[in-house]
Design a binder for these strands. Structure first.
Lengths: 169, 169
DNA sequence: TAATACCCTATCGGGTTAGTAGGTTATAAA
DNA sequence: TTTATAACCTACTAACCCGATAGGGTATTA
């Protein structure tokens, strides 16, 4: 629906004005951490927090953490396939931790769910990819800066284990 | 174009097979630093590197750094509006730095071009936004982790000025 | 006054995210 | 053996943004 006034001197679209106003007021904020990763970490923390060996159902996590159950299913499945979780089918089934929470670094979790930790592929350790547009990686002013950012992030995520983040109240 | 074989027992789409194969082989790597920001930083570094007071043309930066000129124009315009650059129209015109490179922190540049530095809006200092889905921010296992990441990133980007990154050969 | 270079608006294709929908299979309890 | 349960699998989609393009307009200088 476009409301426009065509009266000689004036010719404007009201709809466009509204859209532009919205854009300036509600600036889109990009998530660098996807919901998938966020939910995955939360789910792992939830399971770790329970402590006992009994499997935890998707539905329980879904309700408690307010996550779409179907979406969560696909995430837990991925975590199982990548060796973080075990599963048990049927009644009383669910997902359980395979390793001790202390042994699960956040770097590993994020790399599986999110992909690279670096902000730019050309400084990624595990997902390296050359920039198509960069004439020279060495002459690139962004490159060394992003390496510094990567290393500091890596330090934080490597120091934090699942035990650390699920210890929070 | 869909190439499919329908011969009784078989019914598959070759195209889909190719697409799925591509997806698994060439996993999409998300850029946390947009091209816009990357180009913006490179352009600023380019101007800083020249050193003299003469304005630098968009076309010159575009060619040297291999950036779409039209796209670059919009980025430089934004940098001018946010107080990093001044401009001069007409022949011999272009963009020039307003402040000394030593006075331009990378945090400021990134916040203008990219937005928040934090990986999640709920830990952003300048672009804070509550998570719609989180039952409790304090109980959130991701929250404190992301605060640590934010702070370490902030440290790096705050320590680096335009002078630092344009000093590179 | 012609050339230059900044400035502005509108539009678009491609690709991802965050789901939804609807089923199938394995397991445990009845 | 049946039935309920919960994991597992496949396909699809609306919404959304990025990066770029197109086509101008306007100000300044030689």
């Amino acid at each position: 629906m476009v409301i426009s006034a065509n009266s000689g001197l004036f010719n404007f679209s009201l709809e466009n004005s509204i859209i532009n106003a919205k854009k300036s007021i509600f600036k889109y904020i990009r998530n660098m951490l996807s919901k998938k990763t966020k939910y995955g970490i939360k789910a792992l923390a939830f399971i770790a927090k329970k402590g006992d060996k009994r499997p935890v159902q998707t539905s329980e996590i879904s309700k408690s953490e307010n996550i779409s159950q179907k979406f969560l299913e696909s995430i837990l499945l991925e975590l199982r396939k990548s060796g973080f979780l075990g599963s048990k089918k049927g009644k009383g089934g669910g997902y359980y931790l395979i390793k001790e929470p202390e042994a699960i670094k956040m770097t590993a979790v994020i790399r599986v769910l999110e992909g690279p930790i670096a902000m730019v592929p050309c400084v990624s350790l595990n997902y390296y990819e050359k920039c198509g547009d960069c004439p020279s990686e060495e002459a690139c002013s962004v490159h060394s800066l992003m390496i510094q950012v990567r290393d500091s992030t890596l330090k934080v995520l490597g120091d934090n284990t699942l035990a650390d983040i699920s210890a929070k109240k």
